[in-house]
Design a protein around this nucleic acid. Structure first.
Lengths: 335, 335
DNA sequence: ATCACAAAAACAATCGATTGCAATCACGTT
DNA sequence: AACGTGATTGCAATCGATTGTTTTTGTGAT
């Protein structure tokens, strides 16, 4: 009743295990006589043979798994990048990889432990969407044992290939948009500084503010977390600024959502009294009472290219350069 | 430079591989003399020994992985149940399991393939949040090879243990709440019928409507998908009903979000002209302009108990009964 | 000094698939 | 009829850790 192993199939068929292995394999199949191969495949199918990937992994040194390190699974953007990544990675592969997923929640030190676990599982590659400066050396160490690719977040002076959103441009687009709409005084509510992401959005924004002669209130406002409740609280700081800004760049949509609530609580109208732009274009952004103007994250491009990078690295191809993809402004009703 | 294997450690230390194995193991450690054990552990640490879990899995028949089957990774509720599940499963375990995660997107037939992959990877257990009637026999087959636990969604006349939300009660609570608020005519916008979830919410709601003498407009309104855009479209059917309902039970928060938009577009006020209750209590629900009254899904209880079930099944404990946990109404401003 | 007994360590088989190498076979060539 | 060639298949080692079964070592008792 139990599913047979190759050994048992071999016994039943009167051939050697090695022949079974070859017959069942995609690339070694041509080494087996067509009739034998068909006979083997047929029996394997009817007996319900199920390959043991732990055995194959041990022997071949490849496990058909990839480690995915993500800061927060509740974040749609990460999920969508992971989806695109897996689709790209497995496109046209006869032996698709399954993701081992671990969440860091951006806790310092979490990455080390999790990556160690991935490596113990002999993952074929690691993709990290969770890279923070604290993890830099850990990632570089890991890269000596297995292909490591970064997505979404990069790190300063890092040798690892990455697939990113050009956050600098993202910030710049928003500032440009504010300028076009005639805003004179603006500000940004920035996410935590643990990743390049938010810093780049900030500098891109600030640069264009200067170019266009807009006044950015001096102190960017940091939120401890990039969540909507943090955004709500951050609005007090916006109001306290003098001169008071007429437009806010929220570094992500969750923060923007919180800001919307806070702005409404203060009886201000959006966009007349206060304009607002978010970042990422999460699903909810377009079904809000006032649909949110936001910067659409290039999830497909980033995920896709991360998959390409991993495939190249696995193939031993050294031509694995980092790339950034430009995000696009989606103008809705909050500006 | 490369990380050593046990064999190499054994060579370096002048002891047998088996001694290394025992020294490094939690439960067999006592078989090794304390000094030897310390010496081995120290060297293993300093040499950066990293156990090969593919080898261990092959030998021991346990891989320290669990397969997680989920319909949609963008759904917070599923994510939170998975989080609670993993935390519960690994609580106090010296050898924590890592999740292999696969998404069905509720495509018929997807589960079969994915489960087969899990089984090839020799997962120690499978948890399915994605069970639909079409997958029933597949899940039952899988359960003969490995512990299988269902969460969130159950199936009719199924022998597999499950950790569920009592959706029947959930629906009933909402109807009760409508009755208290004095509504006479109500309706529900139901999610797709592929899972027990939505059906149970519907029957619970309908039962209490009858008990309290409310008129539920005859035809429950089905949405093809349980998304906000589907919810928006569904509102046309609500308006078309005669008599027109004054309260809507949306089977999840995404649908409710879409309904809010549609209701506003028609110039109706919430809750004065139209009351609304959602289901799940996703994060966004409480930061909306009008915070959403909704049924809070017992994510922690469900995930937790699913973990307990898996642990029991792995331990060979037959005392693995299914349980349902009651959800709770969170009254906010849409009613 | 001998023996019993427990502790510690070594020995060796094993998990299941993969793969380099050797053996066999069929067939056409000279 | 002997031989080369290529196609099939079998043989056997291997991946790295785990574990049941010895063997060795050490201790205390008689």
């Amino acid at each position: 009743m139990r599913r047979p192993s190759m050994k048992e199939l071999a016994l039943r068929l009167g051939v050697d295990r090695s022949t079974i292995s070859r017959a069942l394999s995609e690339d070694k199949g041509h080494l087996v006589a067509p009739e034998t191969r068909d006979r083997i495949r047929e029996i394997a199918m009817s007996e319900g043979y199920r390959p043991d990937l732990t055995a194959a992994a041990l022997r071949r040194g490849r496990s058909q798994t990839v480690g995915v390190l993500v800061p927060d699974l509740e974040n749609e953007t990460f999920i969508n990048v992971i989806r695109a990544f897996m689709a790209s990675l497995n496109a046209g592969q006869s032996k698709p990889a399954t993701p081992l997923i671990a969440e860091t929640l951006d806790q310092p030190g979490a990455a080390g432990q999790l990556i160690e676990t991935f490596l113990s599982h002999r993952v074929d590659a690691i993709i990290s969407l969770a890279s923070t400066e604290a993890d830099k050396s850990i990632l570089e160490d890991a890269a000596r044992d297995v292909p490591v690719v970064l997505a979404i977040r990069s790190l300063a002076a890092l040798s690892l290939p990455s697939a990113l959103c050009d956050d600098h441009i993202g910030g710049a687009i928003v500032a440009g948009h504010f300028a076009e709409r005639g805003h004179k005084v603006v500000c940004q509510v920035q996410g935590p500084a643990l990743a390049t992401t938010f810093n780049n959005r900030a500098t891109g924004f600030t640069r264009v503010c200067a170019e266009k002669g807009m006044h950015e209130i001096s102190q960017a406002i940091y939120t401890g977390q990039a969540t909507s409740s943090a955004g709500r609280k951050a609005f007090d700081a916006v109001l306290a600024a003098s001169p008071r800004p007429t437009a806010i760049f929220a570094h992500n949509d969750a923060i923007a959502l919180g800001l919307i609530e806070a702005i409404r609580l203060h009886g201000l109208r959006i966009p007349e009294d206060m304009a607002l732009v978010g970042f990422n274009d999460i699903r909810i952004a377009q079904v809000l009472a006032t649909p949110l103007t936001t910067v659409a994250y290039p999830v497909a491009a980033v995920g896709d290219y991360a998959g390409v990078l991993v495939k190249r690295l696995i193939a031993g191809d050294s031509h694995a350069e980092s790339r950034s993809f430009a995000p696009e402004l989606v103008i809705r009703r909050t500006t």
